[in-house]
Amino acid sequence: MHIWYIWQPEKDKQTPIVKHMNTSALIMIIVSFSVVTFMTIYYFAKVLRTPPKDPKHDSYLDT
């Protein structure tokens, strides 16, 4: 299940600390973070790219 193991310079040599992540956890992280980050950037970029409907009479004060 574990996709990587990295030995750490741990304090107690009797109980070595292993850096590991479950595959399923990693998949959940990658999928969730990617979806949420992509959608946030996608919509925000779309806001930035969308020109005012009527630049001469823009309804916002300073856009």
């Binding site: 919509y43 925000f44 806001v47």
Partner: peptide
């Protein structure tokens, strides 16, 4: 005459991030 569809999604997804 201003958009709410894109604005609401942008704000909502920012919160999710």
């Amino acid at each position: 005459n201003d958009d709410i569809a894109l604005n609401s999604q942008s704000a909502g997804w920012m919160n999710e991030f």
